[in-house]
Design a protein around this nucleic acid. Structure first.
Lengths: 344, 344
DNA sequence: CCGGCCTGAGAAAGCGTTTTCTCGGTTCGC
DNA sequence: GCGAACCGAGAAAACGCTTTCTCAGGCCGG
């Protein structure tokens, strides 16, 4: 007969009663403490099995001071990049027996700090993914969030590893590629204003402009999704640019779709590039030229760093920098005006 | 001066000491219990603010017997469908102050039951998303998982709402559409064998075949991702079918990409359809004909149902059935052989 | 044969909250 | 003016577990 303590669920006390031992002994057995007489241990195990006893994780957490859970806060769960990071993180953490709690800030940066704090209190560590909050805010809360790892954002706070993708270099590589194809008038379809990675791209373009005074680079406002790209067709055409650097693959795909609807041909009329190399980029028509970011790996690395912090190991690498790799596909081609020059 | 109790973090005891009251009173104030003298309450609040006190959620959870967290287990976090469900669920739950814990089973069905149990114990409720486990297993564990809501799977267990998409009807609608275009030889590129939604599609096709004895339907093995579609090009061409029903949009996109590489034209040489209407489906070239599933809504509904269960409300709708909506786009066209017939 | 050591298990003290119980001090009613 | 109802706040129990503390009993050596 299964007896229950006050609450509905079976607790350690029920097992102890059934096996005729104390709570303490049951706990010892369940945790593989070998200072228990084998006979008694067997009896306890039998009782536990019969009652289908499973320790209550909340009680354990309180006693042990750890939850075996980590949190991740992302600005927008709809974004494939963050999904990929989440996936990599979740996979890696699961391998070490950790679960992940997600917090989506829906791009409202004012919520981030609160969300992060709440998540952190429930978890053993936190991954802050491309936070949109200001630097000041970040510095302010970072210490209280430890163990913390940052993705695509850096901080002066000690002990906070940062994994950042070198968007600046990536965007330069892309621009360089377009210039080699003969484009002399480029346009950058920017991302969300608060996005740090957008900032890095802008910096990269500044460097590029300094190195290529002959190339014109027009800045266009934008966003981070399909519709941004789709809605930017007019602005892009007005700019007169023949090589377009979209903020990311989504924007690029939206733009290509819009251009296609206008009867324009990519890449013969206009070259389009993306960023990230999301899985779909390979399968668009034409296949998208983009800068590949090892994004799942980023999630995995985030876990490695966080684990080191949680275990208080000396983290050998306090952070790392990821270089995007240029993926030249079919969405870029020789500039229209420069075409004969190339052939000639 | 900030004093800390034994542990590093600030606890209720610290606030109590600073305000010169007992823990109990602090707790009362923090929880808006109005049986506290306003002066004392103010003093407590001041102390709490000064110490930046935030209640420890684990302690709260233990005392209250709830975690304000729900769990979701999915077979594969890389799948856009599950991502969308997660997103909808997370959004809806957040609005009610709940967080979500994710568990990815990586398509290994034997892990699902354990994962589900663990997740459930940490949470106030659980969403089981298209579980791959057997019916027997599901019936076995379902009672212990309550409050539980199922997505794309049903159970005989009482009190477990099921949200299912009518894939059977959807696939019939698609087939019907192809037949109307003059196709008489169709092929179905199946999904993962253990997928219940694949089973529903197969049932739908049986109904379809019964209603259309003149139409040939060839069954092809498959999977659920891009590469499945890309790798199925040969099998598809060998089948001689002119209308292809891919398991989902991903497979369809992979297939279209493969066909394109072979120099085949969609839809002039062959018509391709997907399923789900993921955001990308609109932007492929040609845009993909598919059956739209209100997937984000599914996640939201899952939360509504789960919330009702958690609050022990009488759930008026013990589950619901979602009808896919046929989205005719450019990837389907008149059958090659039947073309002249159509025009004539 | 007795004292010290060691082993193994129960008792009890946390972990950080909430909540019931209790009780001193008012206030109200008769 | 005195008992009853009441109000507000502290003490203590409870939530379910881990872990230290403690102690009984068995074993060994002297």
């Amino acid at each position: 007969m299964v007896r229950k303590s006050a609450s509905g669920r079976i607790g350690i006390a029920d097992v102890a009663a059934k096996a005729g031992v104390s709570h303490a002994t049951v706990s010892r057995v369940m945790n593989g403490n070998f200072t228990v007489d084998p006979d008694i241990a067997a009896r306890v195990r039998a009782a536990a099995a019969e009652l289908k006893y499973q320790p209550n994780p909340v009680g354990r957490s309180l006693a042990l001071g750890k939850t075996d859970t980590i949190g991740i806060v992302v600005p927008d769960l709809a974004n494939p990049t963050f999904q990929a990071i989440l996936r990599g993180l979740s996979r890696a953490a699961a391998q070490d027996g950790y679960r992940v709690l997600i917090a989506d800030s829906f791009e409202v940066s004012s919520e981030e700090a609160i969300l992060a704090g709440e998540a952190r209190r429930r978890c053993d560590g936190l991954v802050l993914c491309a936070p949109r909050m200001t630097d000041a805010e970040l510095e302010e809360i970072a210490p209280s969030l430890h163990p913390l790892v940052l993705i695509n954002r850096t901080t002066a706070t000690a002990g906070v590893p940062s994994l950042v993708v070198d968007y600046g270099q990536g965007v330069q590589d892309i621009a360089e590629h377009l210039v080699e194809l003969g484009h002399t008038r480029l346009a950058f379809l920017a991302g969300p204003p608060r996005s740090a990675s957008n900032g890095l791209r802008l910096q990269g373009l500044e460097s590029f402009k300094a190195a290529h005074p002959d190339v014109e680079v027009i800045m266009l406002e934008g966003g981070s999704d399909f519709d941004t790209g789709h809605g930017a067709v007019d602005a892009v055409l007005d700019s007169g640019a023949t090589g377009i650097l979209a903020f990311n693959d989504l924007v690029a795909m939206g733009l290509m779709s819009g251009l296609h609807e206008r009867g324009l041909d990519v890449p013969n009329d206009i070259s389009v590039t993306g960023f990230d190399d999301i899985p779909f980029a390979k399968y668009t028509t034409p296949a998208l030229t983009t800068a590949a970011v090892p994004i799942t790996e980023l999630g995995e690395q985030a876990w490695q760093q966080l684990r080191a912090l949680i275990r208080k190991e000396q983290s050998d690498t306090p952070g790392s920098r990821y270089q995007p790799r240029l993926e030249v596909r079919a969405s870029t081609g020789p500039a229209k005006a420069a075409r004969s020059a190339v052939h000639g």
